[in-house]
């Protein structure tokens, strides 16, 4: 065949080869079908380990009790025992190493999440002790009068 016909063909072949070469180096080795089929399971297997490697921040009440026994014991006796320490004190992260202390949030908003009265007869919310935040000592922190660990004390 004549040269001027073949030349574009070689260019085309080289272009396709280049695409395959780039693909070979750019696509991770663990990329492929790992799940049940191509539609739902076509991915990079290492992505699962990436998600697993994220550090846990909310460590749970059991961890708090290892050092703060008195506080947890007091908390366990009252109706607030269902609330996790970290809900109000924030995530423990790597406490006591980092951060060394957790901030104590005295904000009224924390209490009002459950105790701001809402007139919802069919909701569990109506069964909780409630106040009207605009009339019940507005602006004052609840913890001045109520013990958040055990409000019955």
């Amino acid at each position: 065949m004549k040269n001027h016909v073949l030349r574009p063909l070689w260019v085309a072949i080289a272009f396709v080869a280049l695409i395959f070469l780039v693909r070979h180096f750019m696509v991770p080795k663990d990329f492929g079908i790992h799940g049940r089929n191509f539609t739902y399971g076509f991915y990079r297997l290492g992505a699962i380990d990436d998600w697993k490697a994220i550090p846990v921040k909310y460590r749970g009440m059991a961890g708090c009790g290892e050092c703060h026994e008195d506080k947890v014991a007091e908390h366990q006796k009252g109706p607030h025992h269902i609330i996790q320490c970290e809900n109000c004190h924030g995530p423990a992260l790597a406490h006591p190493d980092k951060p060394e202390t957790l901030p104590i949030d005295r904000d009224r908003g924390l209490c009002l999440r459950c105790h701001a009265g809402l007139p919802y007869p069919t909701s569990q919310r109506a069964n909780l002790p409630a106040i009207d935040p605009d009339k019940h000592n507005p602006g004052a922190p609840c913890v001045e009068c109520h013990n958040p660990h055990n409000p019955e004390m």
Binding site: F31, H34, G35, R36, Y40, G41, F42, Y43, R44, A47, I48, D50, W51
Partner: peptide, 18 residues
Amino acid sequence: VGATFQTNDGVVLIDRTW
């Protein structure tokens, strides 16, 4: 591009690098 997928335990995840 295959950046989101279903793991074998049924959770749908996103590959942030992809």
